[in-house]
Amino acid sequence: MDSLSTRYLRAKKIPSTACGGCGLGQVHKKILMAMDELALGVGDVVWGSGIGCAGRQTFNTWKGDNFAGTHGRVYAIATGLRLALPEDKKIIITSGDGDAFGIGLSHLLHCARRNVDITVIVADNLGYQSTGGQYGYTTPLGFVSDSSPYGAIEQNWIQNGIDILDVLRAGGATFLARHSSLEGYDAVKSVKAAIKNVGFSLIHFIYPCVSHFGPVSLKTRDIDRIFHWFKGIFEAGGVFGENFKSGIFHDAGNSRPEFASSLRSQRAEVEAGHLR
């Protein structure tokens, strides 16, 4: 364990049980680097997680307080928790592409609309990899998976002019960014900005899966080739098209009232007798 892990993570859970070569650890590390630079302590953050690779491998790794929600519901849970916690306590959630963009999309979008002060890190391995490699909401069109043996035919959320981040922006999200786990400090800067936004922030983090997506969809077990393919998704000729870029997608940080603080303000008005 490096110094960040020793400071922030539980020895019982690190290293996690993620597959060798999985990119999730790099996503995890970027969050810790951002926390370190923001001088956040273990007691300043409550860490939530979803289901699937991203959820299971990050649950209870945080040395402080942790929760894991049922599949897709961690955003609704965080909405309730936000009301109970002091405003300076951060809620950071790590979940996967199926959790956020599939089963939990309604709750996620309602969090964006309400501008709930949470930071959602969607760690995306381009499909349902923990269940063995089925296509999901970001699997490239035409790609083979264990449930799309003839090629994925269903329009995904990030190709052909459709972008889930556009949906979230229209829904009211106040900070949105997209990166890959293979990037460097730019991604850390985005995580820092996301945490600093007192409102709904989401970072779409794409990371390599070497156990299912590589062998089944990319037809290779060679980690170098898998990583090279993932590095290329933001470059010219990338599989998701020309407009698929890494970086900050939308920054309206601290521009809209936050959900819990709005409720508190109205409550204060009621308690003061100004509203009847």
Partner: peptide
């Protein structure tokens, strides 16, 4: 589904 999950989240925070 959200109703009860929001309740759970609040309860987890001490409400």
């Amino acid at each position: 589904t959200a109703s009860l999950h929001i309740c759970i989240g609040g309860a987890l925070g001490g409400l």
